[in-house]
């Protein structure tokens, strides 16, 4: 692409260095900003700079945070008896979006996979242990991907927590809600049959 302006070229290159944005989309964004009042661009870049300068990782649960301790950890209304262990911050957001969970979180930062150079010491497992020692947690929910590496991780953590007075559970795995049985893969359907649950009549 040929630009008559070096200024435009530089900003297009900046945008297109972001994932998922090509040269053409970048140009569209640049031209849009160019035609807006200067304040729009000022506000935009100020928001980004502010985010980058001030974003922190919660020292307690390793979630992203604006403060030393994140909003979830410092919220007195949240249930401190349950703690949900997840792989990354996006999982926290996904679970928060369900509106079904009011407990605490702990972000591991990945799963154990030596092939990719990730061993147990590269994950936030030690801090999980020390948290459980001082907090009043009764149940740890493992919300980790249902893969072999995920299984290894759950297995490893559960063994570490064996001697603590906490219950360890994993999220249910099975047929997705609104899905049809015939389209579920054999492994999932098989597991769902084996791990079936008692039916409860509504209202009772």
């Amino acid at each position: 692409m040929n630009f008559t302006s070096k200024l435009v070229q530089e900003s297009v290159e900046a945008f297109s260095s972001l994932p998922g944005i090509g040269k053409k989309s970048a140009l569209r964004l640049v031209l849009y900003l160019m035609n807006q009042p200067k304040e729009t661009t000022h506000d935009f870049t100020a928001a980004l700079i502010n985010m980058r300068e001030n974003i922190k990782t919660c020292s307690n649960c390793h979630n992203i945070s604006d403060t030393e301790i994140c909003g979830v950890c410092s919220d007195p209304r949240r249930d401190r008896s349950v703690l949900c262990v997840v792989e990354n911050i996006r999982d926290v957001m996904a679970i928060e979006d369900t509106g079904q969970y009011r407990g605490m979180y702990h972000v591991l930062g990945g799963v154990i996979s030596p092939i990719e150079g990730i061993g147990p010491s590269d994950l936030n497992i030690n801090s999980l242990e020390s948290r459980l020692e001082k907090e009043e947690t009764k149940e740890v929910i493992m919300a980790v991907s249902p893969t072999i590496e995920g299984d290894t991780t759950i297995f490893y953590i559960s063994k570490k927590l064996k001697d603590m007075a906490v219950k360890v559970s994993t999220i249910a795995r099975g047929v997705s809600f609104g899905g049809e049985l015939e389209y579920a893969d054999e492994l999932t359907l098989g597991r769902s049959i084996v791990a079936r649950i008692p039916y409860q009549i509504k209202g009772e």
């Binding site: 030596p114 061993g119 010491s121 072999i148 290894t152 570490k160």
Partner: peptide
């Protein structure tokens, strides 16, 4: 995964028997 872990242990001169 097990073999990768064993290789990593050898490189870092450590060993995690639990894993």
């Amino acid at each position: 995964q097990r073999n990768s872990a064993l290789k990593k242990f050898a490189e870092t001169r450590s060993f995690n028997a639990e894993l």
